[in-house]
Amino acid sequence: MTLSRINRERNRHDGKPDTSDQIWTRLRQDVFITAKSEPMLAGYLHDSVLKHGSLEASLSYLLAGKLSSSYLTTTSLRDVLYEAMTSSEEIRRALRRDLSAVVERDPAAKSLALPYLNFKGFQALQSYRAAHWLWRQERHALALHLQSRISEAFDVDIHPAARIGTGILIDHGTSVVIGETAVVEDDVSMLHEVTLGGTGKEAGDRHPKVGKGVLIGAGAKILGNIKIGAGSKIAAGSVVLNEVPPNCTVAGIPARVVGKPGGPQPSKLMDQYVEFDYSI
């Protein structure tokens, strides 16, 4: 998509809300209520959300303001982010599922507006999605530069080559690290200081593969090219060095199986408590 076409498309959406998009309509309503209740933020809320006609136009504006630098201007970065979001149906679907996941799983998220505007885990994840799109377009230098800016702005470091599904919650986000060959399937929840890393200087496929519906507690470190089975729970502070079977709870350093999670998708329950089964 050419720069002039990007600008035409973006301007066409600005000021003309897409009422067919339920998530976007709900978000605008939440932001409008916030703007009425807090006049000091009204200008910011108008510029970030209310003046735009689509979720993609708003989010590209919001993220560009946070990620721009002296070498990557707000306008040029906004164009890149908007192109990524509107060129990929996968990204469009993912950002809506991610935003819904935050509200459904995080009791601190009282509305769509709160995580959208303020939760850096959500914002970092959507920024990664644009970087991943750039990586797949073979624009590796820009993707890696964007990774660096995301890390500086949000304290979340996700390699643009990592593959991450939809319906993802990164709660708090601080010090989350996801390596180059990591795979995170749909509906995973992780808290702050989680690492999906390698074990040393090995090359090639060297990072964890996390199955659907997994819950990863705060401070957990999962290291190496190992599979974390679907529906598993990784207790806070654990160091996981070996494969985890599906629908198991692991805890400890090094982590071992200590029981079963309370449901098929612990990521949606968000229950951090670990009940030890001493018969195991």
Rank of each mutant, 00 (worst) to 15 (best):
Q22A: 12
Q22Y: 09
W24C: 00
R26A: 06
R26L: 07
R26P: 00
R28W: 09
R28M: 06
R28C: 10
D30I: 06
F32E: 09
F32A: 11
I33P: 00
I33S: 11
I33H: 14
T34M: 15
K36L: 13
K36S: 05
K36P: 00
K36Q: 13
E38N: 15
E38L: 11
E38A: 10
E38M: 11
P39Y: 10
A42G: 05
A42E: 14
G43H: 11
G43Q: 11
Y44H: 13
Y44K: 15
Y44M: 14
Y44L: 15
Y44T: 10
Y44S: 09
Y44R: 12
L45A: 02
H46T: 10
H46M: 08
H46D: 10
H46A: 06
S48W: 12
S48D: 11
S48A: 15
V49F: 10
V49T: 02
L50V: 08
H52G: 01
G53P: 02
L55A: 08
E56I: 03
E56A: 13
A57D: 04
S58H: 11
S58W: 10
S58P: 07
S58F: 14
L59R: 06
L59E: 05
L59V: 04
S60E: 02
S60T: 04
Y61F: 15
Y61S: 06
L63S: 02
L63D: 01
L63A: 02
A64P: 00
A64Y: 02
A64T: 02
K66R: 13
K66Y: 08
K66F: 04
S68P: 00
S69I: 04
Y71Q: 14
Y71F: 12
L72W: 15
L72Y: 08
L72S: 04
T73F: 09
T73W: 07
T75N: 10
T75E: 13
L77K: 03
L77V: 09
L77S: 02
L77P: 01
L77I: 09
R78V: 01
